[in-house]
């Protein structure tokens, strides 16, 4: 295995996980990862040292955002039912039900909050790394993290989620739970 492959390959499972969590469709998520890897291979010489993982996540995140911008023609409202309909996550096993609920709940958050929750909570990236990947200041990362987690908490506790409206930076990603 060559050097480039040796440095990229170990991060592929994490990239797939992140893409799947955001897109919730196996094939589309892997398409995105493939785009990301192709770009990484072709721009490998432009990489300025630093952490390969953060670099790869930055590419993936940018691709996701630009892809989303192109396809985001859906309405601003998404309900649990919509999400349930979209995801189709299998519910055969007992524990899968919990997982499905978790991913469904995540899907109802604004995408920018989903990203932060995933990058920090799941991918274990630092706040600074997450800020670099998403391209916002650390303070913004912190506030998205806080909002996302509190929202998710209320959601999973079955409480009234949204009387506090999310002050989303882009109105197109503004969602409310009915």
């Amino acid at each position: 295995m060559n050097e480039t492959a040796a440095l990229i390959e170990p991060h592929i499972p994490a990239l797939r996980r992140y893409a799947f969590a955001l897109i919730r469709d196996d094939a589309s998520a892997d398409d995105l990862v493939q785009d990301c890897l192709e770009r990484a291979v072709s721009r490998w010489h432009l990489r300025r040292g630093g952490d390969v993982r953060a670099w790869l996540f930055t590419i993936l995140h940018n691709l996701f955002v630009s892809q989303r911008r192109q396809t985001l023609r859906r309405g601003p409202h998404r309900t649990l039912e919509d999400v349930e309909h979209e995801t189709g996550i299998p519910s055969a096993q007992e524990h899968a039900v919990i997982h499905r609920d978790m991913l469904r709940a995540l899907a109802t958050l604004p995408e920018e909050q989903q990203s932060v929750l995933l990058l920090i909570g799941v991918e274990d990236l630092s706040y600074a790394e997450a800020a670099g990947i998403v391209g916002v200041p650390v303070g913004t990362i912190m506030s998205r993290l806080s909002r996302g987690r509190n929202r998710l908490r209320r959601l999973l506790n079955g409480g009234p989620v949204d009387e506090e409206r999310t002050t989303s930076e882009r109105s197109s990603t503004l969602r409310r739970i009915k």
Binding site: P13, R16, R17, F20, A21, I98, H99, R100, M102, L103, L106, L117, L118, G121, V122, R149, L152, R153, L156
Partner: peptide, 12 residues
Amino acid sequence: QRDALRSALQHK
């Protein structure tokens, strides 16, 4: 919440 999210995505 964090742990639940992790385990929900672990299969991937």
